[in-house]
Design a protein around this nucleic acid. Structure first.
Lengths: 336, 336
DNA sequence: TTGTATGCGTTATCAT
DNA sequence: ATGATAACGCATACAA
């Protein structure tokens, strides 16, 4: 059986409340008593029972994180950030993987809600109304999504698209295509809108929306032929994984990247530096997003009177690698 | 404020005990009473307080998972398996990321121990004594590592090495090199030993141990030149990420894969299918390992009298892709 | 400064 | 079959 505060009290010759105080409010107890109690506690390997403490204080010292797929490098990186920041603040983290099924995220959230001080929701595809409901039920922070006044951490998708378009135009590309993610994805809606609007600002540049695709390699493979048929010389993909699918399909078709067509991904997940060619990508601060989400959440739970409207918008930075090149590269000599 | 069993009892016109029973042991309550109570509870949005329940039952309904780095695809996949199996069993999972620092894993484990029914430890590098200590303090299952009588889920590393060597010999390779992971890694010790022993069984085949390397891309990059200098025509890497480093360094050096040298990775993480060339890899059942760990753990907590010695050894399967080819390929014409 | 007493929300024991 | 009551381990208000 585990050692309780009562055991420590008995051995140290004090009352349970003194043991409790010695640990949670050391200043309220005499120095010598405190030292003796703490020494005894340590010697006996005493660890306060979290359940009992939670029952009375109402605080758990835990936070919850819900992601669609922990195997997806995007969410793995966000999770990393959450982990790092939570630990440095002394919080433990529950994590629930919805396995890409938005319909169960609500239930997962409610299950966790009772055991955490707050919840971080990284849920690109859950219906907005579900987010509203959950925000009413528990302390909530959205990551990579914004919905009304729910506290959220987002990235500057519009600026990312702007950088990508600027980069491609500087390389001479004048006909650009966008390979979208799921129609229900919040980020995709933002990026698509930005692509059409910002692309349309240039008289000499045409933009093509190739439609919605699954956010997997298969989605990119499926979009590959459409991209070629569109006449675009450069393609921006919803995310890096879709971009990998494009690279794969282009390779199958004998289309060279970047000589024949340039490809830009989004997210800059760690593996994007390793493909061949390495992927030019709109770099999102994934780990930082997780950290910022924790900071925001702890700020909210720390001060219940804090203004519930809070948004954090993080900067993005295009990372240029081998998958983008000049439009006229095909006309120049190349190895092989 | 949240609705408690007391509130439900008042509304339903019964006692708290009946509310409790209606939810946890429905058979002990009259059908019509039960239905009324359950309907009321649902209507009021009642969710039992986990902390209070834990306090009296001693069970949390949670399990803990400790991994060195959630951003590493290997651990992300294991985590996925843990998630899936835990959820299907109605358990929530705490996850702690030690950020590759084995010295804090013990503390992470102890922090979690109080809030979980059992712990899954995926810790390739923690000292064995730490594992022994933890196993004494809480219900523990090791994944991808074996230590004494601590319940564990492992994969057949030896068989994996055997398949890799067999594959490479079938392709005509007779001088094989092994690029190791960290000296402290349990898996690496297993694989290295198997490599030296199994390779030595063939009169006509030489095996070379290139030493220990960091389990990152940088480790593979660092090993690349040694591999070439060793005269080996095929290289087996500690894991896929190290193999990526080899591919990168070989590309820099103008060495073609698989024409000039063949490369085999280990783990078959999802991204290994996406590189160019795609990576031949000893496929480990990562998701299944996580699931098996949960099964084993729940078996242990379900029956406290269960025999504490339990091991699960999972099969591996070499996945052949583009990074391995015949030894004499260089002599044949090739594109370019 | 320290001890005593109360209660957090639930389950378990014992009456009824 | 149901209700009253104690107990889980701790934190806190209050008394000393």
């Amino acid at each position: 059986m585990a050692v309780s505060a009562r055991d420590v009290a008995r051995v140290a010759g004090v009352s349970v409340s003194t043991v409790s105080r010695a640990l949670s409010r050391p200043d309220d107890v005499a120095a010598h008593t405190r030292d003796r109690v703490l020494a005894t506690a340590r010697g006996m390997g005493y660890r306060p029972n979290a359940a009992a403490r939670t029952l009375i204080t109402g605080r758990t010292g835990n936070i919850g994180l819900i992601v669609p797929d922990i195997e997806n490098p995007f969410f793995a990186s966000v999770t990393k950030g959450v982990q790092l920041q939570a630990r440095s603040a002394g919080y433990a983290v529950f994590i629930a993987d919805s396995d890409e099924d938005p319909s169960i995220e609500r239930e997962l959230a409610r299950n966790l809600a009772k055991q955490v001080d707050g919840l971080i929701l990284c849920s690109p595809r859950a219906p907005g109304e579900v987010l509203d409901d959950l925000a009413r039920e528990c302390t909530l922070v959205l990551v990579n999504r914004r919905r009304g006044d729910i506290p959220s951490v987002t990235v500057d998708n519009r600026e990312g698209v702007r950088q990508a378009i600027g980069h491609l135009r500087a390389l001479g590309h004048r006909r650009l295509a966008y390979v979208g993610g799921p129609a229900t994805s919040w980020s995709n809606r933002e990026r698509l809108a930005a692509f059409l609007e910002l692309g349309g600002e240039h008289e000499d540049t045409e933009v093509v929306d190739l439609g919605f695709f699954q956010p997997y390699v298969s989605g990119g493979v499926a979009a590959g032929d459409l991209a070629l048929a569109s006449g675009a010389t450069a393609v921006l993909a919803y995310n890096d994984v879709v971009a990998f699918g494009l690279l794969e399909r282009f390779r199958q078709r004998g289309v060279r990247v970047p000589d024949d067509v340039s490809v830009v991904g989004t997210d800059d997940i760690p593996v994007s530096a390793l493909t061949s060619p390495a992927l030019t990508s709109v770099g999102l601060p994934l780990v930082s997003s997780g950290r910022a989400g924790v900071d925001m959440l702890l700020g909210l739970v720390g001060d219940p009177a804090a203004v519930p409207v809070h948004h954090h918008h993080l900067a993005v930075q295009l990372v240029v690698r081998g998958s983008t090149g000049p439009r006229d590269a095909a006309a120049r000599p190349h190895p092989g």
